[in-house]
Write a protein that binds this DNA or RNA. Structure first.
Lengths: 218, 218
DNA sequence: CGGTTTCTTGATTGGGATCAATAGGAGTGG
DNA sequence: CCACTCCTATTGATCCCAATCAAGAAACCG
C-alpha cells in the first residue's frame, strides 16, 4: 500500500498524550495522519454542543480525510491513549509528481473505505437493537485486534462506557447492563476495561439472529 | 467543477424508469454516474435481505463512488422517478492524462463530501429523536430543492413513507404520526406526497431543540 | 486516605414499535 | 362513469425496549 511514497513524505511524527487533540473541527486541513501507535476517537459536535463519536481508530489507519472536501476539518480527533502519528503534508501530495498514479489510487481507496465504514455504521444505527449493537461493537474490536496481530479473545477497551454508548447511539447504563447480561450468559467476561470473549459464536448470533435484526460493523 | 473533462468523458447517457436499478450491490464497478434529472435512492442489503437506505440523490449529484474501494459496488441504486444519468467510464478517468490534477481533486472532493454526508447521518441516527429526524429530513429536502432553483416551501416527496422511515431508522407509522403532528402544529401541510412548509423556523427549532426531554414539569 | 469520576444495578417512565383496523388514492376493467 | 382491487397512508390501542431517575460500588488519583 504505497509505502514508498508515504514514507518519503511522512517524515514528521507527532506524539500525543491521552486526551490530547490531534485536530479540531473548523481548523484548517493541512495533514493526513497515519496512526503509528495508539488509539483515537473522531467526533462531531452539533450546534447544541452534543457530541457524536463517528469512529474509533487504531494503528495503521489514516485520519484526517474528512478535511479534503472543504480544506477545513469536519470532525475532531482525540487520543484515547498515548499515541504517535505520522504527518503527511497534503499539499505536497497534491503536487508530487509520483503521486499522480499509485498514490491517487491509494487515497481513493482510503476514502471509499471510509464511506463503507460509515455506511455500515448507518446500518447499525438504523436497524439494530441495543444488544446487537454492543455485540457488533465487540466483534469489531475483536476483528481489529486480530488484524493487528493481537488476541481476538482478550483485549483492553481504550474508551469509556460513555464513549461506547455515544458511538452506538445508546446510554451508558444500557451499555453497562448489556455487558453484564453478556457476562451472565457466559459470552464474555468483563473487569472494567479488560474484556475476555469466551463465546465468539454466541456473540455473532446475537449480532445477526437475535430479534430478527442484524448487521455487523465494519 | 471540472465540466470540461467530465463532459468529454460523459458522452453516454442512460434513462431509467421509475423503479429501475442503476447498479446493484456486488456488481462490478465500471462507471461513475452524474444525475442529469430524476431522483434516486441508494441501499444496502444485509444477509437477511433487509434493506437500509443510505441516501437519496437528486440532479447534479454523483453516484457510484462506493465502488472505488473494491471495484465492486457496495450498494444498489434505484430510480424513484423516471431519470437520466451520465455515465463516466472510471477506467478512462484513471488513465486520462488530464485527469492527473484537476479531476483527481474533484473526485477527492466528491468522496470527502460523501463522508461528511454519512457522518451527518450518523449524528442524526445516533443522537436525534423521531420528531427531530423527520424535521431534519424535511429541512434537508427543502434545502436541496432550494439549491436547485425550486421552492423551498413546497415540493413533492419522491419516496414513500416506508422509504422515509427506513432512511431515518424509524417505522412507517411513526413517520406518519409525526407528519400529522407537524400538520396540527401548523408547521406543514401534507397531502400524500405533496408537502407545503408553513413554518420553516419552527421546523428548525424542532430539529435542534429536543422539546420533550428538557421539560421537567409544567 | 478522602474526594472524584466511572461503572454497575435497581425502579420507573416513556417514546417508538408493534398490532390492528380504517381510509384514501391509483389503477383496472366493466 | 362506477365498482372493484391493490397498495399506501393514517389513526388508535397496547406493549416493550431503552431512557431516565436514583443509589451504591468500584476504581482512580491527588
Amino acid at each position: 500500500m504505497e509505502h514508498g511514497l508515504l514514507e518519503k513524505l511522512a517524515q514528521t511524527k507527532r506524539r500525543l498524550r491521552i486526551g490530547e487533540c490531534l485536530y479540531r473541527t473548523g481548523e484548517g486541513f493541512f495533514f493526513l495522519y497515519i496512526i503509528r501507535s495508539g488509539f483515537f476517537k473522531t467526533t462531531l459536535i452539533d450546534k447544541e454542543g452534543r457530541e457524536q463519536i463517528t469512529g474509533f481508530h487504531m494503528s495503521g489507519e489514516m485520519m484526517g480525510i474528512d478535511g479534503i472536501a472543504t480544506d477545513i476539518h469536519a470532525c475532531s480527533a482525540f487520543a484515547l491513549e498515548n499515541s504517535e502519528v505520522c504527518l503527511i503534508p497534503y499539499q505536497q501530495l497534491e503536487n508530487t509528481d509520483q503521486s499522480s498514479e499509485a498514490f491517487q489510487h491509494f487515497l481513493r481507496k482510503a476514502l471509499s473505505h471510509e464511506i463503507t465504514r460509515d455506511e455500515n455504521m448507518m446500518m447499525l444505527l438504523g436497524t439494530m437493537r441495543a444488544n446487537e449493537r454492543v455485540a457488533a461493537f465487540l466483534l469489531y474490536l475483536s476483528q481489529s485486534y486480530l488484524a493487528r496481530g493481537f488476541s481476538r479473545y482478550e483485549f483492553y477497551l481504550r474508551m469509556s462506557r460513555a464513549e461506547i454508548a455515544n458511538y452506538l447511539g445508546l446510554k451508558i447504563e444500557t451499555v453497562s447492563r448489556i455487558l453484564s447480561s453478556f457476562q451472565s450468559m457466559g459470552c464474555i467476561e468483563t473487569q472494567q476495561k479488560h474484556i475476555v470473549i469466551h463465546d465468539l459464536e454466541k456473540l455473532k448470533h446475537l449480532d445477526s439472529k437475535n430479534m430478527t435484526r442484524s448487521h455487523p460493523l465494519s
